[in-house]
């Protein structure tokens, strides 16, 4: 057992696996090997059952490095090039983005400027990017012909950074199939119009959030808002760690809504066959209309939820 573990440790070290991870992996193997020895295996059979330490170390290190690599390409700016920076004027700050299939991340910058970063084989000069009177506008070129004939390979992804600590007065994002990642940015009026792209919103404070999607999914985490209006056709919406001080109005045809850890003053749902599921979902009042969609709320804490204007044809309502 000791030689096997020693070999494994050395192989992992060779592959630059961090000490913490090595300790953890060795601990797990001590546990599993001692279990195996107790059961049926002899010392000699260990490598047979547990495999060649070198192969195992290789697998584990490619696991971790490939994992890291994924994160980096998502997250870091390494592959992104800075196109332009803008210093904000004294005006009220607004951002308007209009895309077709380009993926866009909007986040807070590390300094007090706007930064437009891009990546991909497309031609950045075809894009119209301007900053005037407090308005940052980014528009993709108008594509001629049918959308599905466009080659996504010629696309560009953007990371747009908003000056740190700035509250935008308005943020609007329009896209067809591009994904949108919006985080750590505060904006008074925030509007997303997306056809099939997915939307992720994280850690943001807004006054009014409007989301319209057809088939894209929406994920919201750590949001504080006064009003949320959302309308979906078949996309789903997930909201967690959300505080809405006035109203959420949510409509969907076949998409589902899931709320967890959400505090809402008034929640209005207008569903066809989509379901609403809440876990630790605390609206003070609910209005629920559906054809066959269900409403299901499971909370640990019992609070009074006032039902108003409930109307469903065949959906089930369950609140506990």
């Amino acid at each position: 057992m000791m030689t096997y573990l020693e070999d494994l440790k050395n192989e992992l070290k060779k592959r630059n696996v961090s000490q913490d991870e090595i300790d953890d992996i060795i601990r797990d193997h001590e546990e599993m090997i001692s279990e195996a020895l107790r059961e049926d295996l002899t010392e000699e059979e260990i490598p047979q059952r547990f495999g060649d330490p070198r192969a195992l170390a290789q697998e584990l290190s490619s696991n971790t490095t490939s994992h890291d690599a994924d994160e980096e390409s998502d997250d870091s700016q390494d592959d992104f090039k800075l196109f332009k920076s803008f210093t904000p004027s004294e005006d009220e700050q607004k951002v308007f983005i209009s895309m077709v299939f380009q993926d866009v991340t909007v986040r807070a910058s590390n300094d007090s400027d706007y930064h437009v970063n891009y990546q991909g084989p497309g031609d950045i000069d075809e894009y119209s990017i301007s900053y005037r009177h407090g308005e940052l506008k980014i528009e993709s070129p108008k594509f001629k012909g049918l959308l599905f004939k466009q080659n996504k390979k010629d696309s560009i992804s953007f990371i747009i950074e908003v000056p740190k600590g700035t509250e935008l007065v308005e943020f609007k994002h329009k896209t067809v199939s591009g994904d949108v990642d919006f985080r750590d940015v505060n904006a008074k009026n925030t509007t997303f119009s997306i056809t099939s792209g997915d939307l992720n919103i994280k850690n943001t404070k807004v006054d009014k959030l409007v989301v319209n999607t057809v088939s894209g999914d929406v994920n919201v985490k750590e949001l504080s808002a006064r009003v949320v209006e959302t309308s979906q056709v078949s996309g789903d919406m997930n909201m967690s760690k959300v505080i809405i001080t006035e109203l959420i109005h949510a409509g969907s045809v076949s998409g589902d809504f899931a709320f967890s850890d959400a505090h809402v003053e008034l929640a209005e749902f207008n569903m066809v066959n989509g379901d609403v599921e809440g876990k630790e979902f605390y609206p003070k009042m609910i209005s629920f209309k559906s054809v066959s969609g269900d409403l299901d709320i499971k909370n640990n804490e019992r609070t009074d939820i006032k039902m108003q204007k409930t109307n469903t044809l065949s959906g089930k309502i369950n609140i506990n």
Binding site: I25, D28, H29, E31, M32, E35, A36, E39, Q48, R49, F50, G51, D52, A55, L56, E59, L60, N63, T64, H67
Partner: peptide
């Protein structure tokens, strides 16, 4: 860990060095 490995290897031809990295990745 060991229980998962024994259960799987009872039915399919698979060794620890395939299963453990999967457990680890799914956990991370």
């Amino acid at each position: 860990g060991y229980d998962i490995i024994s259960q799987l290897s009872e039915h399919i031809d698979v060794s620890e060095n395939t299963i453990y990295p999967i457990l680890r990745r799914l956990t991370s």
